[in-house]
């Protein structure tokens, strides 16, 4: 009976793993097939001939290098800024009680419920007024704003798990409040800080709708914007599309695997959207 249950469990888990991984497998295989083979029947489940031509095309014709660099710059800067903001803001929300604290928390939580899209049109007008359309800097500003609430709330949660006594001991030893924060608290929280940074990075890296609203010049496109212009063409070149998907997904897979645990803790501790 027990052995039967174990066997059933193995089968179910195996099937689900297959279902989960197959799309990923399929996009990788597609990206490695020569162009004619992608569009020919019967379908082959392994390329008859493995080729990297789609990856080469991406970088030679489509200027993917520029998009990749843009995505990297925007995501790194926005994530760094938002992490610093989260570290500072989370600290005050966790360690001080002051008038307006509840209001700030509420204002941040509410943004997590508001769909971004209702602000899309006015945001476009704002960016246009500030002359930030088609600029990476504009994208960074909006991304920081988009991530501040999550970063602050999740950092607050991490601080609350660090005993106040730890800090007070350092302050008794003569360190200032800021000194105690930098030397004692921050080291304890490094994993949490890293997780916040990576989460922010991945969110920016993946963001589509704001980017396509504000960016249409070639030299400011991020990867999602570039891929979006692939699909708005009449015929989709699935070979390049598959290669682009693989290139843009690999970094996020690695990064997310590293921080899954912390994000889950943060999510289950506070009511924040995923």
């Amino acid at each position: 009976m027990r052995r039967l249950a174990t066997a059933a469990k193995v089968v179910v888990l195996g099937v689900w793993l297959l279902v989960t991984l197959f799309p990923l497998y399929w996009i990788v295989v597609t990206s490695l097939k020569p162009q004619p083979e992608i569009f020919s029947l019967p379908l082959r489940y392994w390329p008859g001939e493995v080729t990297f031509e789609h990856y080469e095309e991406l970088f030679s014709f489509a200027d993917f290098g520029t998009y990749l660099a843009n995505s990297l710059i925007v995501s790194l800067v926005a994530a760094a800024v938002v992490t610093v903001i989260g570290v500072l803001g989370g600290y005050t929300l966790a360690r001080f009680s002051f008038p307006g604290r509840g209001a700030v928390m509420l204002a941040y939580l509410v943004t997590q419920m508001i769909p971004l899209f209702i602000a899309l049109a006015p945001l476009y007008l704002l960016m246009s007024d500030l002359d930030l359309l088609n600029r990476l800097a504009g994208l960074m500003l909006v991304y920081v704003a988009m991530l501040v609430p999550f970063a602050t709330i999740i950092m607050r949660g991490f601080y609350e798990r660090v005993p106040v006594a730890l800090e007070e001991a350092a302050q008794v030893d003569g360190a200032s409040r800021l000194g105690a924060m930098v030397r004692v608290v921050i080291p304890v929280m490094l994993p949490g800080i890293a997780a916040t940074f990576i989460f922010g990075f991945v969110q920016c890296w993946n963001e589509l709708f704001l980017a396509i609203t504000f960016i249409d010049s070639e030299d400011a496109k991020t990867i999602p914007v570039a891929m979006n212009s692939f699909i708005t063409q009449y015929d989709i070149d699935w070979g390049s599309m598959a290669a682009a998907t693989v290139v843009s997904v690999v970094p996020t897979l690695v990064l997310f695997a590293a921080i899954r645990r912390y994000i889950v803790e943060g999510l289950t501790a506070g009511a924040v959207k995923g």
């Binding site: 500072l88 803001g89 929300l93 700030v104 943004t111 602000a119 704002l126």
Partner: peptide
């Protein structure tokens, strides 16, 4: 201290989230 720590984030959210929502 509290003000300095909270202000940067609050400004971002006010300008790029709440202002557009209200204008919308």
């Amino acid at each position: 201290f509290v003000g300095l720590c909270l202000l940067p984030g609050a400004v971002f959210v006010a300008v790029f989230t709440y202002y557009p929502v209200i204008r919308g």
